[in-house]
Amino acid sequence: MNKKILAYVALFLVFVYAVVPMLINISGRLDFYYTLTSVALLSIASAGVWLTFYIGRINIGQGAFALAGGYVSAILISQYGFNFWVTLPIAGLFCAVLSVFIGLPILRLRGVYFAMVTLVLTEVMRLTTLALPITQGAKGITSLPLPSGLEIFGLKLIPDFSTLENPKVGFYMMAITLMIIAYAVLYRIVNSRLGHLCRSLQQNEELASSIGVNTTYLRVLTYSISSFFGGIAGASFVAITQSIYPSSFQVADSINFMLNCFLGGLGYVFGPMLGTLMLYFGWDLLFTIGKYQMLVYSSLLIILMLFLPNGVLSLFDRKEKR
């Protein structure tokens, strides 16, 4: 069993690092690099949302943390001259700390109430970035430099992106690497003691706390991990677009993060990854049909939900049982 999983992982790695760039070069559709980079980064944010689903909370507030992470990175780069690679973990940590303060009161809420408060949180974050002087209001922060190189003890780890002949490939590699790390962490969390405890929270919080599970601590911990992912995704997006505005991540984005999780399946670690790929790519591919894009896209969503209400990955589930 373990060997099988390792083989799958190896296959996946070869596919994303070698086969995909090769296919893109053959087909000449270089714009797919950008699409796939976005998918990879969005799926990191969705992974965070999925983790809050795992403790039984509907999180529609990931956009807030993506925006916060993006602004932290952008402000550090533009005003204090930090290297992007240093700001990336700082942005994540900032969001994690922020989410502890926000999470402590609001994680007591459940069900729809939590969902709606996090939805409002996205709007609060957008309005805050509009109002604060350091975020420069609606103008946003623009013309950020491309990520510079990173050296540790003279060892060149990451080349300067502005010297690359095609920074798109660099960004693709960066996003894919971040995504793989994020999902490895997620897989590890789910298949650990922490994962078991989270499942107990999902099923019955009162029972779990009566057995002696520290529910408050667990909730805040998982929520801060989730927000960490959000912050990382937001900061990476800033590096790619080289700009950030209060409207970079809005309520619609937060809802999309949640939809990615639903579509992939809430019971599967890799559900959000697949969901993001399908939603984002589906939307992109349907661009060719012009004004009917939205109609076809939403009909497909509804049909998918009608026939696979437990997510796309539940398709494989059923086959194994037969």
């Binding site: 939809l259 639903f262 969503l301 509804i302």
Partner: peptide
Amino acid sequence: STMLLAAGIGFFLDS
């Protein structure tokens, strides 16, 4: 799961 369905219906009505 009905949230995804509701959001899908929202998009659909929009279009």
